[in-house]
Design a protein around this nucleic acid. Sequence first.
DNA 1: TTGAAAGCGCTAACAC
DNA 2: GTGTTAGCGCTTTCAA
Lengths: 342, 342
Amino acid sequence: MTGGHGEPTIRDVAERADVSKSLVSLVLRGSPSVSDVKREAVLKAIKELGYRPNAAARTLSERRTRVVGIMLDDLRNPWYVDCLDGLNSVLHAGGLTMVLGDGRLDRRSDQRLLHTFMDMRVDGLVLVGTMTPSGAVSEATLRLPTVVVGSRDFKLPRVDVSAQDDRLGAELAVRHLVDLGHRRIGHVAGNQAAVSKIRRRVYEDTLRAAGLADEIAVQKCDLTEEGAYTAGVRLLRAERRPTAVFAVNDVACVGVLSAAAELGLSVPRDVSLVGYDNTYLSRLRYLWLTTVDIASHEVGHRARELLMQRIDDPIRSSVEYLAAPTLIVRGSTAPPAPNSRI
Amino acid sequence: MTGGHGEPTIRDVAERADVSKSLVSLVLRGSPSVSDVKREAVLKAIKELGYRPNAAARTLSERRTRVVGIMLDDLRNPWYVDCLDGLNSVLHAGGLTMVLGDGRLDRRSDQRLLHTFMDMRVDGLVLVGTMTPSGAVSEATLRLPTVVVGSRDFKLPRVDVSAQDDRLGAELAVRHLVDLGHRRIGHVAGNQAAVSKIRRRVYEDTLRAAGLADEIAVQKCDLTEEGAYTAGVRLLRAERRPTAVFAVNDVACVGVLSAAAELGLSVPRDVSLVGYDNTYLSRLRYLWLTTVDIASHEVGHRARELLMQRIDDPIRSSVEYLAAPTLIVRGSTAPPAPNSRI
DNA sequence: TTGAAAGCGCTAACAC
DNA sequence: GTGTTAGCGCTTTCAA
């Protein structure tokens, strides 16, 4: 050791192994042009010293961090976990590490998190979830290769999008109900986010296409279970009670499930329910909701590809990739009961 | 601009504002000893250039990052969200930012994540969840001020722990059932983690203390809903069927709920259920489980205090802080039905 | 109050 | 193959 104080540096390693700094650096990055003897010596010194390279120093000279920043919309809404999984596994292969931050664990902290990422000079940025493109966000996308996952609200010049096809998914859901023989099909809709709007529009279009324009019945909610419960009660208390409900997502679907229970309606006997996202909520066997799987893993995987490409070529034009969702039929849907047919 | 290439540096700012680098640096950290004129000039230049300080360079000379690394046990298990919330809000106040990583989004990647944090030279480390102290973990705790949140499996020399009191919580849960008049109270237990063991032991002790030693009935599970379902079925199919079940956590409790439903048992009429954690699962009105609230916010808050103290004084001896959990009575518990009393 | 200069720990030419 | 050297962008004495 030189100073004896603080963490060991590449210098200490070099001294101990009796080589030069650059030789150590070469070993560190696995250069082939190092003799085995020296390499061993260096490795030994590294181990003995418990040396760990200083990322800041490396970043400074290499001008890259090998870190990608992931900004999450809301940690409480776990639909994205599979997607991160798809992202992370392949990121590893590319030698990248991801660090996450929750954009609004504390409101307006998305700005702060974004600044942290920018200051860190992360190699890339992944925005996960339905976030509105605030000033801070667009500023960040201007400086960092960025891909958006899940949201459809972004139309930013150099920003790619990886998501799933809501049109297809919503149609799958509604058609499933129509095909089962339902006619009075209600919808619990979401907020202003593009995905909510698309799902709602497709719901309406699909009913129309099936000649059921008169049966369209929509209640909005705030995407919480509680809000969806209220919306569900309104829907199911109507004079012409729907025999089926398509909910904008799984959480909302559980809210509607509560509403049905509250009103003494049995699912799926009295009312069929379809959710969206195939979150683990819908997979709970106690709920066992028919839902739309959003191919999260593929979406995450694709996000990584888009990000790598954008890092390579920051100025290429935006790409939007939509994975194909699939219908998952579970226990919350069935044909309408004979007596409710008319 | 000097080079015209790459991001603007402090040098560019200095040039543009016609001052020296160090003056800019002073402004950056809000030093009072700068004339207003120059300060304005610098601020103006910063804004015009879109300058952002390079964290790597700053870290290198300041020898601190103002970042704390949070390693999550499992992103899928959302009990910690509130706790991060408690952590994050106060971290902000201290000028710290947190970055998260999931330890095992990919197995053995906890080592990788930890290395990333070490290489980043984060100011502190927070380990959230029931993770076993692997070699990589203890190595990391040796170098980084560390606090563990939620787990009770750590007895590492310089590592603090913030958690809740499982003894108290489990006793609250079991006593609640006893007080309701239940005698045959089963338990769906967890894995090898200390918290699981404690909860189980307290369950047994409490039954004994109530003179119900003969009624002790335990089934283990793997902490998934599916596993708990199986355990629940075994428990509820027993000759002397329990009239109440204490589950090791909310997820397990939902599994038992499924088991009850499967066996045609009504909750809480035929069987009462208590979970643990007060996750949003138990708060879903469709489930509405009686459970134990683990004071997550306080735990998170306290974790931050412990961390700050340890950063200040890295060699003080370990501190363990246990928050007091509380019982949340919801809809899954009731007195036993008269006919099942004996 | 401001500026000059010496690092922080590492990588990357470039010599040898 | 291996060592030398000049930065990377910032903070921080120390003078002025």
